[in-house]
Design a protein around this nucleic acid. Sequence first.
DNA 1: ATTGATATGTGAAATGAATCACCGATTTAG
DNA 2: CTAAATCGGTGATTCATTTCACATATCAAT
Lengths: 211, 211
Amino acid sequence: MTRKIPVKTLHRFSMIYCCLLESLAAGVSRISSRILGSQLGSTADSIRKEINYLGEVGDVGSGYDVAKLAGRISDVCGFEKRRTVAIAGLGKVGSALLENPEFENAGFDIVAGFDSNTNILETLTSKVPLYPASELTDWVKKLNIEIGIIAVPPSAAADCAARFVAGGVSGLVNFSSTTVAVAQKGIIVRNLDMICELRFINSLMTANQKA
Amino acid sequence: MTRKIPVKTLHRFSMIYCCLLESLAAGVSRISSRILGSQLGSTADSIRKEINYLGEVGDVGSGYDVAKLAGRISDVCGFEKRRTVAIAGLGKVGSALLENPEFENAGFDIVAGFDSNTNILETLTSKVPLYPASELTDWVKKLNIEIGIIAVPPSAAADCAARFVAGGVSGLVNFSSTTVAVAQKGIIVRNLDMICELRFINSLMTANQKA
DNA sequence: ATTGATATGTGAAATGAATCACCGATTTAG
DNA sequence: CTAAATCGGTGATTCATTTCACATATCAAT
């Protein structure tokens, strides 16, 4: 019997998987929950509880086999399945992402880039085909794009998200300093708002000073 | 009597604050917990519970005054306090951040940029003073840099974080696809790992398909 | 071989968070 | 003016997560 895995745990699996790949690259073949916890800012207890959602994958007394644990997480989370991605907004950040080889290595194929500025579309040279933002929804449908990355200015973010959703994406990653909300159920939105995170750090700093 | 505010709630305050600034910019002067909840992917109940950590700031029956609520959050979280920030790694992403005016508007002063490539340091023109990465720790001390932004390649991220910590920063924002952990207590690390988030979306998509 | 340190797995307990339920106040529509 | 809908504040309840405690297995060192 398999228990339902909480969303929070799925997110932790992505982080754990990231650590495991690093360990593998560094030639580490075994790892303990204590080490993983310290690397992820968590406790060994939590890590073990979370990994137990995968069944018994560790060896009592000697920790986890890194490759085995990574494989188990990959199986459960479906990391072997490649996903199609598009980037909207080809300014400095967006165009930098276009050329990032890490996407492909991680199983994500960037199949399109969009911008509302035709000048940028003509100037920018990329292996990835580029299209005007006005055609975004159509291309998302045509290319079966599953995940949209929003790298447009904050003022355009909501509209951009709506176009992606209209095209039928399953997930969005939002880099703009705007909290993007999507009404449709089942569509996942991740806001990576740097300004918001800086403010959060600020608040923790003031809280720490008060304590 | 003021209750201790949970870390999770502080993070939500940053997100709520972001929404409030947008509402203000859009000319909205009053907002309800229900609307805030839908914008943040949360429930009205949760929003109210969290805002209650700020004391009674809403008006029963007619919602919250946007400016008043924003001001209360700003007071409690210390958003009026400006913080000094440095960016390590002046590749595409890092150099894009250097020129981002949103930092200054949000109360963060970028006072230094670092890179290990002297060629980049000479080529790049910026209002922000640039220094070689080897001098990072010294400049962090000298300039009293409070927050470090890590935009270096993954392989250099751990070393970069260590230098920031040695210089005495209070917080780190990590953009590299590496989970940065810091042993020292009281130092806040925020990992904005895009690849990790994409994998997370992937796992949710496979989970949704199974269900 | 044996001792001590360290490891996972896992129930039980404690803690924390989300949800429910309801009061009193306000707004809106007609 | 009235009635219905909406709103914030808040205790109580339910639910989920983290922590604790410990049995058991492995490893390293002597």
